[in-house]
């Protein structure tokens, strides 16, 4: 299960390394990239994820996806962050982003016909279903460009912060997903 996920992530990273495009404008910059990330969800354990990013001089969009399968249960998390970019520390290689994120945590039960038959024989039910849980939060990130050639490589540290319940805004309790990423792409 994890070997398949890592293989998919490796293929995606290699695809990002060979991206190419055309010149749009010398005054307007556009970048597109693909990479891998380690996701932490409050327990200090890291999970692999894939990241796709696109951006202009002042704005960026980043999408993350990760998940796992165990038995008939599939967990998938998809997030899309819309970000404003700005330079910090008077550096051309370090930038910060601030914006919002939309997340979907999807849980699916996928029973095979054999599993359904076994459940039916035990006078139980095995019903395939999918549940989607959406949330909106704040996103902030720090990025460092370690290669500045036609092929760009950058390290990212992004956090998605969500209020924990209705009282989260008053009592400052939150849920967070942290992404430590390595991505590559191209800037026109």
């Amino acid at each position: 299960m994890y070997f398949r996920a890592y293989f998919i992530l490796l293929k995606g990273f290699v695809a990002g390394l060979i991206l190419c495009g055309w010149q749009i404008s010398s005054a307007f910059a556009f970048d597109l990239g693909l990479g891998i990330a380690a996701v932490e969800q409050g327990d200090d354990s890291q999970r692999p994820a894939v990241v796709i990013n696109a951006g202009t001089n002042f704005y960026a969009v980043r999408a993350y996806a990760y998940g796992r399968d165990y038995g008939p249960v599939s967990e998938r998390t998809y997030s899309l962050s819309l970000l404003r970019r700005f330079g910090i520390l008077a550096s051309k290689d370090i930038e910060a982003t601030l914006g919002m994120v939309i997340m979907n945590e999807q849980i699916s039960l996928n029973y095979t016909s054999d599993q359904e038959a076994v459940a039916e024989a035990a006078q139980k039910k095995a019903i395939s279903s999918t549940e989607n849980n959406y949330n909106i939060g704040a996103a902030m990130g720090i990025y460092y460009r370690i290669l500045r050639t036609p092929l760009d490589v950058s390290l990212g540290w992004e956090a998605h912060l969500f209020p924990a319940g209705v009282q989260g805004g008053i009592l400052l309790s939150t849920g967070r997903k942290q992404y430590l990423s390595l991505s590559s792409g191209y800037t026109w």
Partner: peptide
């Protein structure tokens, strides 16, 4: 890509902050 029209503020004085909030 270093970008943005947010203007860094140069004027700053020494400040001491006290903040409270639950850590994760």
């Amino acid at each position: 890509m270093c970008c943005g029209i947010l203007t860094p503020s140069k004027a700053w004085a020494k400040k001491l902050y006290f903040r409270v909030g639950p850590p994760a």
